[in-house]
């Protein structure tokens, strides 16, 4: 019998003490144990970026992180962006630029873009595309997404 591992993890500012199975990945923990289903799961092999979350402020793929690795860490998910009913500026930019259609990829893009926004870097359109290339969208195309992020990064 494999033992569970006790962890203390802060998710969107709330501390959780949990017992996790070592083979559970972080995206499953967020969805299954905490009910935070905004973090999506696609390929579970690190390719699609649907599971992108911030780990101590850095964009990472949640499906490639074992749940016990979250011990002592701060995690941010898409649920942490809005304040009540009020969307974060980046989310508003997505809405205004029609940066989503089915929305399945949106949490991944929002988290990858949140890390970019906080870096304070001024990026060209090409650089934004490169920085976001770890998240795939299968329906809107990337134009609106890149436009939304570009507007935010240039203070628009």
């Amino acid at each position: 019998m494999i033992e569970t591992v006790p962890i203390l993890v802060t998710v969107n500012g709330t501390r959780h003490v949990l017992d996790v199975e070592p083979r559970m990945h972080a995206a499953d923990l967020l969805r299954g144990m905490l009910g935070l289903t905004g973090t999506h799961v696609g390929c579970e092999q690190g390719v699609c970026g649907m599971c992108t979350i911030l780990l101590d402020g850095t964009a990472v793929k949640g499906c490639l992180l074992l749940a016990p690795q979250l011990d002592g860490c701060e995690v941010e998910t898409v649920e942490g962006l809005a304040t009540g009913e009020e969307l974060a500026p980046l989310q508003r930019a997505f809405k205004e630029a029609h940066a989503l259609q089915c929305g399945f990829c949106t949490p991944g893009f929002l988290m990858a873009a949140t890390a970019l926004e906080r870096s304070g870097r001024r990026l060209t359109r090409e650089e934004i595309r490169e920085e976001l290339s770890g998240v795939l969208c299968r329906c809107t195309g990337y134009e609106g997404i890149v436009r939304a992020v570009e507007r935010r990064l240039t203070g628009g």
């Binding site: 083979r23 990945h25 092999q45 690190g46 490639l64 074992l66 690795q69």
Partner: peptide
């Protein structure tokens, strides 16, 4: 974990212990 965890997820590897 960017190579190891995909291989664990695909069960291409089944170690009995993972040393972080």
């Amino acid at each position: 974990g960017q190579s190891l965890v995909p291989m664990l997820n695909m069960r291409l590897l089944r170690p009995s212990v993972v040393i972080d």
